[in-house]
Design a protein around this nucleic acid. Sequence first.
DNA 1: CGAGCAAGCGGACCGGAGTCCGTTTAACTT
DNA 2: AAGTTAAACGGACTCCGGTCCGCTTGCTCG
Lengths: 218, 218
Amino acid sequence: MTGPCDPSSSRPPESGDARATLPLVTLDEPERLRADAARNRTLLLEAASRLMAGCGATNLTMESVAAAAGVGKGTVFRRFGDRTGLLIALMDHREGLLQAAFLSGPPPMGPGAPAVERLHAFGPAVIRHEREHHELILASRADPLRTYAVPATRLRVSHVAMLLRQAHVAGHPELLAHTLLGSIDAALVRHLTTDRGMSIEQLDQGWHDLVSRLGARP
Amino acid sequence: MTGPCDPSSSRPPESGDARATLPLVTLDEPERLRADAARNRTLLLEAASRLMAGCGATNLTMESVAAAAGVGKGTVFRRFGDRTGLLIALMDHREGLLQAAFLSGPPPMGPGAPAVERLHAFGPAVIRHEREHHELILASRADPLRTYAVPATRLRVSHVAMLLRQAHVAGHPELLAHTLLGSIDAALVRHLTTDRGMSIEQLDQGWHDLVSRLGARP
DNA sequence: CGAGCAAGCGGACCGGAGTCCGTTTAACTT
DNA sequence: AAGTTAAACGGACTCCGGTCCGCTTGCTCG
């Protein structure tokens, strides 16, 4: 007879990343993989993407992904940790274009335009990107805390915080960045448009309004 | 050989509540229960609460709750739908005090104070309440979209939106309410304090700052 | 080039969420 | 009070996420 909870494997709640205290911009993790592992990783992501296109993200099972990639189930877990990890990797992979656009694309989103203009351009782009991939994004949110460890999220936050600093906006840049991003969160956008009848244009309007008010000097 | 996805039980993604288009203040759902069902519901909530106190929310299994309440497993699912539903019910139940405080408690949170003051008082109270129950709150967030159907969430949103209207704040009240509430979301607060070294006082400060800036007339 | 070994692999296995359906029972009807 | 019915009950069953551990294989160093 064991204790009432489950004494085996006292898991220190997963704890995410130890290097969370590093500056937010440290987003690189090359993670040297052995040749076969790297190949299988790609195979798995492709298989998952293919399966997800056919059925929903909800119907994606780890076993089917493994089978479709021609590897064992254990391999999927070894590579991605768990189901959420796989979904996050998949989602993260699809952010490439958006990231390129605001990191190094042409103005007004990319560098070259004044910070406030870049901020204004950022919101609508994110809203549209998230609408396009909402299923995957929502599915990858099973653990709310893990969101903050997702590279794409961290990059957005540090990017917006940087723009806020450049625009000399008063207040705590990181907190403000989270607040701004929260107003165009995928789940919220989905709720407001689907259940509450708001239009994308109203959301754009709300974003511009918010940026303007925060940026305004008293 | 079946289709590639899973043709059985084509579940129309759960769809939450059909009455989501009703005015946000409609929060009542008396839900007449048969005597035995009502009794078992209480037994189950008590059992779950007791078990959760002993072990974490993560270690709470539906079967153990059923056993501790002396009912069958099927009964738990019939009553609460799924695990998330049980956790939401549990969490919702614990919001009573906070809700009483901002709905009918003494000023500055309760009625009697000017709307802007009530807004200022609201944030810190929520932050503290969420810190106290973060485990349950976070655990009940498995499905990000369902959050907006949780009575406690809807009540907060409609309350803040009302205060914003009363304070004659420009902009879309509901969107602004979500934005404000997003800045003190349980997961965000947890992240900022645990991983990013912010203090509760800084978060309070951020809240007051935000409310002030939104409330300020140009 | 060959040996050592850490990393990768895979599939049997386990536990818990969610379903199903035959049985029981509270509430209402006459 | 007995009959009727819709709701509630319970536990066997299925399916999937996650673990475990013995086997294999790509790298590295002598």
